[in-house]
Simulated assay, not measured.
Amino acid sequence: MRAFLLFLLLLALLALVWSRGWRPPDRYNPWAPLDLRAPPDLFFRYKLDRLGREPRACRAALAQAGARFTPLPDRDGPGACGWIDAVRLRGTGAAAIERPAIVSCPLAATLVLLDRQVLQPAARQLYGTAVRQADHVGSYACRNIYGRASAPLSRHARAAAIDLTGFVLADGHRLDIAGDWDARGRAGAFLHLVHNRACEVAGLVLGPDYNREHRSHFHVEAQGWGYCR
């Protein structure tokens, strides 16, 4: 009984301070908007998932982070393919995208986090420079997994995945996943570091060691809880 009364008292105190305008710092507030410029906090996956249901807030977060993008009208079909609340992404705020990619807004937000929290720190650590560009071989594609007729629909078919093939540094040095993944020295170390840390911000990352279909790229999705293979 005493514990219950103490619990009610605590709730009353919280309600009082909340009514007077007090709010916890954004890092400790699951209802605060996601700031893509800040390091991921305890609630960032929840906040990122919420962006999928709040397209205006998602686009505002991208703009706040300096991403270069154009909102796209929804596309329905063919079949179960298409997208909702997607953008044409040209840059993440620091790095350019090799060619504009059609991606869901949460995936665009994930790529901004990947650039800020993983790519740029790894490049500074190993090369003493920045990543200028991220290369890819596609985002939206209306197909099943691996293009097999009997397989489930690919996440690419909903603009919810992108296949990154490499990165270009500010000094022009190119890092290619297909050619440098097994390389000794800084190139291989950089790509492994990026892959290993990518799931700190991405929901799913499949790389060259996953299977032969991914030997040439990192398959990146926003949805998930940090699964890297």
Rank of each mutant, 00 (worst) to 15 (best):
A151P: 04
C142V: 07
A141F: 13
G185N: 14
E213V: 10
G224P: 11
R184D: 15
S216Q: 09
Q223D: 13
L175R: 02
N196R: 15
P152F: 02
N144Y: 09
G185E: 13
D176L: 03
W181I: 00
P208R: 00
V194L: 15
L153I: 10
G172F: 14
G147F: 06
D180H: 15
D182F: 14
A202G: 11
V201A: 03
V220C: 04
H192F: 09
D135F: 08
A189I: 01
R148V: 10
R197G: 04
H192R: 15
H136N: 02
H195W: 15
F167D: 00
V220M: 03
R148W: 12
H217W: 04
D171F: 08
R143L: 10
L175T: 04
G224N: 14
G179N: 11
G179D: 12
V168P: 04
P152I: 00
D182I: 05
L193D: 14
R148I: 05
T165I: 02
S216T: 08
A183Y: 07
F218N: 04
G188Y: 04
I162V: 15
A183I: 06
D163K: 06
I177G: 01
I162S: 01
A159C: 07
L175G: 03
P152Y: 05
L164Y: 02
E221S: 06
F218L: 15
N196I: 13
R158D: 06
